[in-house]
Amino acid sequence: MIMGGICTRACAFCNVATGMPNALDRDEPASVGRAVAKMGLSHVVITSVDRDDLPDGGAQHFVETIRAIRASAPGTTIEILTPDFLRKPGALETVVAARPDVFNHNLETVPSNYLTVRPGARYFHSIRLLQRVKELDPTIFTKSGIMVGLGEERNEVLQLMDDLRTADVDFLTIGQYLQPTRKHHAVIRYVTPEEFKSFETVGYTKGFLVVASSPLTRSSHHAGEDFEKLKAARLARPSVAA
């Protein structure tokens, strides 16, 4: 996670500290690049807190981190898990131009939950962000994820899948929400393994290249293995941009 440990938003599911973040560490991208090379990572996921205090939402810092990894570890594939860069003109275009291998932006939950679960974000802005990535560079894999157990209805999850496929998103993750502390949003229910399997099956029928759906699925869990699945699934589907 880059850009510090203090987030400018206060989502009801997240246990990251909220407040005014510290100034960016300008040496951080180079440090990340060196660390990736030293650990010999074949695939790396770079994420961040929300940085609404910055004019570009931290977009350039993502770019510099991608470039530093490519310089220090050219064989490493890069997945980024970004904020929504809300109302930051040109931020998304800047990041896409750095050509990460996977662009991940999580919806987190269905739109009816946004006011209580993700109040600082807008559902259709996030959908449009993912769609715009594909418009700018169809070769970049796009990915999004949600948590279930927050009071959503099944039909809402299926509609969310349709919205993501309309945006040409390649990869969907679905996992069980777990309450970090008593002050966070309560778990409304625990979704059964059978329901997770059903979501996976439906997701594939709707056209996702990869669907990871289980109680313990997390956005970046097994990301390297799933990247290999993405590449194989694209090759097996000639109509998808290569």
Results as ranks from 00 to 15, higher is better:
residue 127 I to S: 10
residue 21 P to D: 10
residue 85 F to S: 03
residue 30 A to P: 06
residue 85 F to T: 07
residue 60 Q to S: 14
residue 7 C to I: 05
residue 210 V to P: 02
residue 41 L to E: 05
residue 185 H to A: 02
residue 110 V to E: 01
residue 183 K to I: 07
residue 215 P to I: 07
residue 196 F to Y: 07
residue 66 I to D: 11
residue 124 F to G: 05
residue 97 A to E: 15
residue 162 D to K: 15
residue 21 P to Q: 06
residue 162 D to Y: 12
residue 164 L to Y: 00
residue 129 L to P: 09
residue 77 T to E: 05
residue 236 A to G: 14
residue 30 A to F: 03
residue 238 P to Y: 07
residue 173 T to L: 04
residue 160 L to Y: 01
residue 196 F to K: 04
residue 128 R to M: 11
residue 86 L to M: 08
residue 30 A to K: 13
residue 142 T to Y: 05
residue 70 R to C: 05
residue 195 E to I: 00
residue 204 Y to P: 00
residue 1 M to V: 09
residue 14 C to Q: 14
residue 141 F to D: 06
residue 124 F to I: 09
residue 214 S to H: 03
residue 13 F to G: 04
residue 72 S to L: 11
residue 6 I to A: 01
residue 51 R to E: 07
residue 23 A to M: 12
residue 181 T to I: 03
residue 199 F to R: 01
residue 91 A to T: 02
residue 156 E to G: 06
residue 46 I to A: 10
residue 237 R to E: 13
residue 101 D to Y: 12
residue 8 T to P: 12
residue 104 N to M: 08
residue 84 D to Q: 06
residue 15 N to I: 08
residue 217 T to N: 03
residue 226 D to I: 14
residue 143 K to A: 10
residue 86 L to V: 07
residue 12 A to D: 03
residue 25 D to W: 14
residue 35 A to Y: 15
residue 52 D to I: 15
residue 85 F to Y: 15
residue 240 V to C: 00
residue 3 M to C: 10
residue 38 K to H: 12
residue 152 E to R: 00
residue 133 V to Y: 12
residue 237 R to W: 09
residue 131 Q to I: 01
residue 49 V to D: 10
residue 2 I to A: 08
residue 223 A to K: 05
residue 29 P to C: 12
residue 74 P to Y: 10
residue 163 D to L: 13
residue 142 T to G: 11
residue 224 G to Y: 03
residue 31 S to N: 06
residue 57 G to L: 07
residue 195 E to C: 10
residue 193 P to K: 13
residue 155 N to K: 04
residue 12 A to G: 05
residue 194 E to A: 13
residue 52 D to N: 15
residue 107 L to P: 02
residue 86 L to G: 02
residue 100 P to L: 15
residue 108 E to G: 01
residue 160 L to N: 06
residue 207 G to R: 02
residue 161 M to D: 09
residue 24 L to K: 11
residue 114 Y to R: 07
residue 17 A to S: 14
residue 204 Y to K: 15
residue 71 A to M: 07
residue 24 L to T: 13
residue 39 M to T: 11
residue 51 R to C: 11
residue 144 S to Q: 05
residue 19 G to C: 08
residue 227 F to S: 00
residue 177 Y to N: 00
residue 30 A to Q: 14
residue 153 E to I: 01
residue 15 N to R: 05
